[in-house]
Design a protein around this nucleic acid. Structure first.
Lengths: 342, 342
DNA sequence: ACGTTTGGCCCAAACGTTTGGGCAATCGCA
DNA sequence: TGCGATTGCCCAAACGTTTGGGCCAAACGT
């Protein structure tokens, strides 16, 4: 029964077979109940519907888009899909998109500006109705250009400028980790802070630092180090922290993968995670709890973030006013952070 | 300069401004060098080109697709993008697609047949030129239907039936692990075998079992257990293996995430990975080397697999004959597998 | 000098929809 | 019976491309 590839069934085919005009068929298949009854007699409606799904009619989206100037496509840019955080966010986006009759178009930019630009152009050339950026730089220069072109968009994961975004409350999450480590007696701590252009790392570090500041402890600058967001990056950054000797008693890595990298570096220095050096991460990816030393981390609602991001964009496309959302994180205490040795 | 959202520039705009016919402009902007010179004088060609990129002309892909009956879109189905293996494969696909002037459309099916069907329909409704399945069931029933509809497609990651696929040589990879563990003296081993419908798990297990069989050791049936491919699934499966008491001296989990889950279960039973129970994984995901106990695993060329998959499909779309490819794996020995205690 | 090629461009018909207008027949109602 | 409203449908013009044919003038060949 389904549409055969050789001959996709068109409105005209249906119309011809039914002895109706193509416009009539279109209206019948299209309109909400209230209109369809104005479009044809209920008997006709029935006939049309039956034939349509007997033949497996699927409207040609190119024709539709061409005519309506709306593609029902939305473009999604992420640094890399092989980052489980972004992948999970994207899953949320895709799920919600399905419910809105939208299709998504996702592409990797590796966090490099030239790629962001190029991919944005490509996506726009595909005539998407709107975009979701998961790779925003905190300095929102590029986004400004996009906005100037009149493209509706929202941000997920990272915030930037005053553009509508759906993020985790990263600052709060950072505070939670700070307070937790303080409560365990850690006074000499270090931060693997992520990329300097990502609000996630910035806000998490800031929340963490503020928690310590309020306890009267200023974390010295050399205890902060930037890093890529993957395991290798976390490893290298931690290596730098540890290289000088005089290891901190605890390390906060602003995401789980960097934390796992920190595990590796700590191990390489003959130290034990938990016992010798506490390590905390961020995101509560599914691996965190399974590690040989389970990772203390902050659960961020990644899937939900994606969903909300799409909803936000959908509302934007309806012409509604929207404002940013900040989702609540939750601290997950596990074995990688234990009380400081006294 | 770029195209403003409010008024995408069309061929007609260019034509009018240049005092040319739209078809002329089309040919100029389109044709390969040899034809363009037949389409207009070189002076005209120059004028057209200049204006086109001054105004940032981008052909409307919907119009083009409608006219040419070709979308330059390809649909990609994966179980889940939050699985780093599939995400990495997809990155390869996307990269290669870009080089071929194709755009990809990826969607999650969670490995559930109803979703595969539904998503396939949706993707086909979008009029893709071809598809790549990363979620094939070994019983290729559904793929048969797709093939019957005349849709060109290839498989990646998993093989099925005689459809063209690009996979890792999973059987060989399994053998490698088997031989490695044998060489370490492990005689009582168990396998966390993945989903029963995925060729990856099946082939890896088979290669492993055959290596043992050739050494004169038949691994008993109760030492095999199926599992989901994520950490949680690996944990549960390993739990089942260990629940009976009498733990094996080594466990082969058919992917890294399941292996990490195995770490968790082993840990929960008061055993140490490496020292008490050897654990090996598959894929060499970036985390494997960073774990507190680095994971012995098999490197599979995931990115490359994606690239090759797309190339294969591209050739298929050109009407060429294609045949499956099997990529070579490489054993990565690390600390999680040590010699059996004597 | 007269056909033939060629260069340089234009015409018009598609591709499959959507949608503002029509228009004839029937209905409701006084 | 007359008249406006409603029902049920059809018409045709877009949307932006691509592409097989034309057509006219200039160049060419003999």
């Amino acid at each position: 029964m389904g549409a055969d590839r050789t001959s996709p069934v068109t409105l005209r085919m249906l119309a011809d077979r039914l002895g109706l005009h193509v416009s009539t068929v279109s209206r019948v298949l299209h309109a909400k109940p209230d209109e369809s009854h104005r479009a044809a007699s209920s008997a006709t409606v029935e006939r049309v519907r039956r034939l349509a799904d007997e033949l497996g009619y699927r409207p040609n989206p190119h024709a539709t888009s061409l005519r309506t100037q709306r593609s029902n496509l939305i473009g999604v840019l992420v640094p890399r899909l092989s980052d489980i955080v972004l992948a999970t966010i994207y899953e949320g986006i895709e799920e919600a998109a399905g419910e809105h009759g939208l299709s998504t178009f996702v592409t990797n930019t590796r966090d490099v500006p030239d790629f962001q630009r190029a991919r944005t152009d490509m996506v726009l050339a595909r005539r998407v109705d709107g975009m979701i950026f998961g790779d925003a730089y905190i300095d929102a220069g590029f986004l400004g250009e996009v906005a100037a072109r009149g493209v509706p968009f929202v941000l997920v994961s990272r915030r930037a400028g005053d553009y509508p975004s759906v993020t985790c409350d990263d600052y709060l999450g950072g505070r939670m980790v700070g307070e937790h480590l303080l409560s365990l007696g850690h006074r000499d701590v270090a931060v693997v802070a992520g990329e300097p252009y990502a609000s996630t790392g910035i806000d998490r570090s800031a929340g963490f630092a503020d928690a310590y500041a309020e306890a009267g402890i200023e974390i010295p600058a050399h205890r902060f180090t930037h890093s890529r967001f993957d395991a290798r990056g976390g490893h290298e950054a931690t290596e730098r922290l540890l290289a000088a000797g005089d290891p901190p008693s605890a390390i906060f890595a602003v995401n789980d993968f960097a934390a796992i990298g920190a595990f590796g570096a700590v191990r390489d220095h003959g130290l034990r995670v938990g016992a010798d050096v506490a390590v905390a991460g961020f995101n509560d990816t599914p691996l965190a709890a399974e590690l040989p030393v389970p990772l203390t981390t902050v659960r961020s609602p990644m899937h939900e973030m994606g969903r909300r991001g799409l909803e936000l964009l959908a509302r934007l496309l309806q012409g509604e006013e929207v404002s940013s959302e900040r989702l609540r994180p939750e601290l997950m205490v596990r074995a990688s952070t234990t009380a400081v040795l006294t």
